[in-house]
């Protein structure tokens, strides 16, 4: 800005410059928003992320299936008695990310484990029924999860996440 000023009304002049500058700043910021927001998921992606229903009848004891919800693999595991017992017998305090098995399942449906199959380390997909804990083994960097999907060994910091879901009937769940 020029230093020569119309000395009679310096305040009015400054006010004008500040007002114009402020309006320009507000306008620029408001204009930026659409350019950023367009990167968020679009309406069709959001609509496609609606809840899905999964029929559990085909999954026999000791088996699991993988379904996709919002592009994420979801493991649904029908656990054996042994698996449940193992998950419950371990002292919670000794875990890296302490959580009881009961808090990770829906009560009354104790044999069903529903977890998002994404390793909490760096996002690989762990393999079910592998590793030392009758749960999941991540081949990328060797994280091991137990039969409740809790982290037991390896670099992953947290348990496998439980997606939002509920039982609509004894043999059907709704994920999302």
């Amino acid at each position: 800005m020029t230093t020569a000023s119309s000395a009679d009304q310096p305040t009015r002049r400054d006010f004008l410059f500040v007002a114009t500058g402020a309006a320009a700043a507000v306008g620029t910021v408001a204009t930026l928003w659409p350019f950023i927001d367009q990167m968020n998921p679009d309406a069709s992606t959001i609509a496609a992320g609606a809840p899905i229903e999964v029929d559990l009848t085909p999954i026999a004891e000791g088996q699991d299936i993988k379904v996709f919800w919002r592009g994420k693999p979801i493991y649904i595991m029908n656990r054996t008695k042994k698996q449940i017992e193992e998950a419950r017998s371990v002292p919670v305090a000794s875990l890296k990310d302490p959580a009881t098995d009961e808090s990770r399942i829906k009560s009354g449906h104790d044999q069903w484990l529903v977890v998002i199959g994404i390793c909490t380390h760096l996002g690989c997909i762990p393999i079910a029924h592998e590793g030392n804990y009758d749960g999941f083994f991540c081949p990328c960097h060797g994280s091991q999860y137990d039969s409740s999907g809790r982290i037991r060994q390896g670099p992953a910091p947290a348990n496998l996440a439980v997606p939002p879901y509920q039982f609509v009937s004894d043999t059907k769940i709704q994920i999302g």
Binding site: F35, Q38, D42, A43, S44
Partner: peptide, 9 residues
């Protein structure tokens, strides 16, 4: 139709 502010852009 679907992209946020897509019509505007």
């Amino acid at each position: 139709r679907d992209v946020n502010y897509g019509w505007l852009l």
